[in-house]
């Protein structure tokens, strides 16, 4: 009787697991990261569970920092010295972008699918540039070859200084420069792995926060890819903030700038006076 019941439950349960819609949940081990005076980077751990994980499934975790507006300039040699020229402005570029995957990203999904879902550094940057001036990147392939070379940036607000004409391949150079600069200070990171699949559909992702981690609101997005397509996703939020004495001085400097300036001057004068007392007394 009991065994038959168990068998019935087991039989009932078996097909249910297989047909269940795939899903994913995730949580960060901490919701805030504090930057104190001894901050030298941190390691962030994200735990998650999947429902209906199969052998064809892979997991991608993206951590995206607060957006900031950038001006990218190209150095040009003028009268023998290198001068910043040809500025191009980008809005809302993530100040931090890290990606952790259960397999190398290019084996999880093809470039077209990554571009469509905006996953990956390259796809993210191109989506950003396309949002600013769609003609730079998107329409180029549909235009005749001669006009595709030189394009007028159309959808750019008036307050952005842009050169009159931008070559499409030049925009790619600017995007590559943003990516290089982020990789240099480790605020952009594409780990080839970083997601560890544990037993029972559980997984764990570790993401490194570098010493130059920007403060602000972060979003962690977790994707479940099946056969190269995202089939489920979840997001969790994270806040990176200054704490302790760092926070005190930062807020002091930004909220009460005049008083802070006065404070800096008085502290320096006091330090100089004390130095005089200590060393110049004869």
């Amino acid at each position: 009787m009991l065994t038959s019941l168990l068998v019935a439950i087991a039989l009932q349960g078996q097909p249910q697991i297989a047909t269940e819609a795939p899903g994913i949940v995730a949580a960060l081990t901490q919701e805030t990261v504090e930057i104190r005076e001894d901050f030298d980077g941190a390691e962030l751990v994200l735990y998650g569970a999947t429902r209906g994980l199969t052998i064809r499934d892979e997991i991608v975790v993206v951590l995206r920092g607060p957006g900031r507006d950038l001006r990218v300039m190209q150095k040009r040699r003028t009268f023998g010295i290198w001068i910043n020229a040809a500025p191009l402005e980008f809005d809302d570029v993530p100040s931090y972008y890290a990606i952790a995957t259960s397999l190398p990203l290019d084996t999880i999904a093809g470039p077209d699918e990554l571009a469509r879902s905006g996953v990956g550094l390259q796809a993210m940057l191109e989506a950003n540039a396309a949002a600013m001036a769609p003609s730079w990147l998107l329409s180029a392939s549909t235009l005749p070859a001669e006009t595709a070379d030189v394009l007028q940036p159309a959808a750019v607000a008036d307050d952005h200084d842009v050169p009159a004409l931008i070559r499409r391949d030049e925009v790619a150079d600017y995007l590559a420069a943003i990516a290089r600069s982020g990789r240099r200070d480790n605020t952009f990171a594409e780990a080839q792995r970083g997601v560890e699949i544990l037993d029972g559909g559980l997984f764990r992702a570790t993401i490194a926060l570098p010493p130059l981690t920007p403060v602000g609101n972060y979003v962690a997005e977790v994707y479940l890819f099946r056969d190269g397509r995202p089939i489920a996703s979840r997001s969790a939020s994270l806040r990176v903030e200054k704490a302790g004495i760092e926070r005190f001085f930062f807020e002091f400097a930004h909220d009460l700038p005049a008083l802070y300036g006065l404070f800096c001057v008085l502290m320096a004068m006091l330090a100089g006076y004390l130095a005089n007392l200590a060393f110049n007394r004869r």
């Binding site: 507006d69 001006r71 300039m73």
Partner: peptide
């Protein structure tokens, strides 16, 4: 004068 290692600069705005 020397050629910089990266010919682009990223400036916050």
């Amino acid at each position: 004068v020397v050629t910089p290692s990266d010919l682009f600069v990223i400036l916050p705005r």
